[in-house]
């Protein structure tokens, strides 16, 4: 496009490079693939899932990068990110504890389990413990209602949890983290 009068101020390449630098390889691949889709915007949510999977949350920088590379308005990316409960806009702990408060779990005492977690960790839903180890969230059914009350720690589902088992459960994950670090 050498005949374009504004080509000297076109910083598209830099912006693209900066955007690429903000994301990881697999995310970039997913974006490449999306661009070939007849409806690239339809891949936005899948890509945001990948971003959260990689970074643990959706940072402003990453969301802007996705908007740039996918060629959708940044406002739309933010709009989507804030609409869906699953997306976290600030960093979470090493382990995200999702306490199911679906009907089956509620009826079987899920609320008491939640209370115990709050008490043990000294935090409320949506908060992260000071050591950065645990984030507490509430879930709407993880699909194992027959084993209620249920909690999910990262991808692991724990069934028939009793409030007095909570301290031991937390200790187990703390140990796990220590081992992984060592």
């Amino acid at each position: 496009m050498s005949h374009c009068a504004c080509h000297n101020t076109d910083n598209r390449e830099q912006v693209e490079a900066a955007s690429r630098a903000a994301l990881s390889e697999d995310i970039l691949r997913a974006i490449e693939e999306a661009r070939r889709d007849p409806e690239p915007g339809g891949r936005l949510i899948s890509i945001l899932h990948k971003v959260q999977g990689h970074f643990g949350y959706l940072g402003k920088e990453q969301m802007d990068a996705v908007a740039q590379l996918l060629q959708v308005p940044a406002a739309e990316v933010t709009g989507v990110a804030t609409f869906y409960h699953f997306f976290r806009l600030k960093p979470g702990g090493r382990y995200v504890i999702n306490i199911c408060l679906g009907t089956a779990c509620y009826v079987k005492g899920g609320a008491e389990v939640a209370e115990k977690f709050k008490e043990e960790l000294g935090i409320d839903f949506g908060e992260t413990s000071k050591d950065g180890m645990f984030t507490l969230e509430c879930a709407r059914c993880v699909g194992t209602c027959g084993l209620a009350p249920v909690i999910m720690i990262n991808e692991n589902v724990h069934a028939k949890v009793k409030p007095d088992e909570v301290p031991a459960l937390l200790a187990r994950y703390r140990d796990k983290a220590r081992q992984e670090q060592a």
């Binding site: 409806e39 915007g41 339809g42 891949r43 936005l44 949510i45 945001l48 899932h49 959708v72 989507v80 609409f83 869906y84 409960h85 699953f86 997306f87 709407r140």
Partner: peptide, 18 residues
């Protein structure tokens, strides 16, 4: 991505559209 209303068909369509 964790929105109950997305089970409703028109909301679901919007969600697939990104």
């Amino acid at each position: 991505a964790g929105a109950f209303v997305c089970g409703e068909e028109t909301a679901l369509i919007h969600s697939i559209e990104g």
